[in-house]
């Protein structure tokens, strides 16, 4: 019989579990129910007791590794914490969120346990045996995999399960002791991109995709990068959308072209960028095929403004394409949104 451990950790504030962890809890509950397996949930946090109140009140054994050393994400401490939780539970399947914190350590923990790991899991299914679905080649190929070997670690991509929202708050938490190695790394904090305001908003409802067309010559034969920048920033401010961009646009910095100052490589989506998850997406001035369009693989409702209705970003990929000049349309949209706020 399978035995499942879900690993969770605190968010940046330390006072709550992060959303991705709660999604992993949902996945654990579902899988345990389907396999009729034992379920345990492990917490890594400075003060795990407080966080346990976010977790199911029954049906799962709760364990925690607590202490100031776990207030921050760090390889040595997090790996030791996860290892201790695994050794305490002896699970056959370990589920964890693919947060930056656990992505850093999960493979090593699997190795320490003599187990194996698969990551970027987008769903867990199978009837006779556990089968997990994940992406290869930067979201361009999808595969269902299975493993005979145990323990099997599965790192779940954010957004693939709903965050746990069941009854909480009464179960006891077992504290698991950890012996830490000598620490050679100190975490001193966070740094936001140096250029301009933060434009990456993972929790936003909408992704706004700016393509290289914004900095190309417009019908009057001129480049209007400043105006493009103002329109994009205006739209982001009015909608709270997150900003994604194509590789060709973020790469322009090195070529002496007019570039949009608030864009960095962190904004890049697609083949060699990120594939964020948002409910809606609006692409503007984008043109590209499969390698680029994977950038909005996980966008729910997609619309595009493009002068070419047959372009790869639009045909078969968007729900609606407006054949129009994005400069004109976004200016009007911003005006309407501004008027609505006023």
């Amino acid at each position: 019989m399978e035995s499942i451990l879900v690993l969770t950790h605190a968010d940046e504030t330390g006072s709550a579990l992060n959303n991705a962890s709660l999604e992993a809890v949902t996945a654990g509950l579902e899988l345990a129910s389907r396999l009729n397996a034992q379920l345990a949930i492990g917490i890594v946090a400075a003060d795990a007791t407080a966080l346990s109140k976010c977790l199911p009140s029954e049906g799962a054994r709760l364990l925690a590794v607590s202490g100031e050393a776990f207030a921050q994400a760090r390889y040595a401490t997090d790996a030791a914490a996860c290892e201790a939780l695994c050794r305490a539970v002896q699970p056959t399947i370990v589920l964890a969120p693919a947060s930056s914190r656990f992505t850093r350590v999960a493979a090593s923990v699997a190795h320490r346990l003599g187990g194996f790991i698969d990551t970027h899991i987008s769903s867990i299914g199978g009837t006779d045996r556990v089968e997990a679905t994940r992406w290869f080649y930067r979201q361009r190929v999808e595969a269902a995999i299975s493993r005979d070997a145990r323990p099997w670690f599965l790192l779940l991509d954010a957004g693939t399960y709903a965050a746990f929202a069941g009854a909480t708050g009464t179960a006891q938490v077992e504290q698991v002791p950890v012996e830490l190695p000598a620490l050679r790394t100190m975490v001193s904090g966070f740094r936001a991109p140096t250029q301009g305001a933060q434009t990456i908003r993972p929790d936003a409802k909408m992704l706004f995709v700016a393509g290289a067309g914004w900095t190309k010559k417009q019908p009057d034969g001129q480049v209007h990068a400043t105006e493009a920048g103002e329109l994009i920033v205006g739209f982001l401010a009015a909608t709270g959308a997150s900003l994604g961009s194509s590789k060709s646009l973020v790469d322009q910095g090195g070529e002496g072209n007019s570039v949009l100052p608030f864009l960095t490589h962190l904004n890049q989506i697609g083949q060699t960028g990120s594939t964020p998850r948002h409910a809606k997406g609006l692409s503007t001035c984008c043109h590209g095929e499969e390698p680029h369009v994977v950038g909005w693989r996980f966008i729910g409702d997609r619309r595009a403004i493009s002068l070419d209705p047959n372009c790869g970003w639009t045909r078969g990929k968007a729900d609606v394409v407006y054949v129009a000049d994005a400069f004109e349309v976004i200016a009007k949209v911003n005006a309407l949104l501004g008027a609505a706020k006023a």
């Binding site: 790469d251 090195g254 070529e255 043109h287 095929e289 047959n310 372009c311 790869g312």
Partner: peptide, 25 residues
Amino acid sequence: PFDGRLLITQQDALLLGGKVQAMPG
């Protein structure tokens, strides 16, 4: 009669078939 497969715009031929790229610099 564009079908997005063999009957495509010239720009899509560049992207789908030519996979054109220019190194900066």
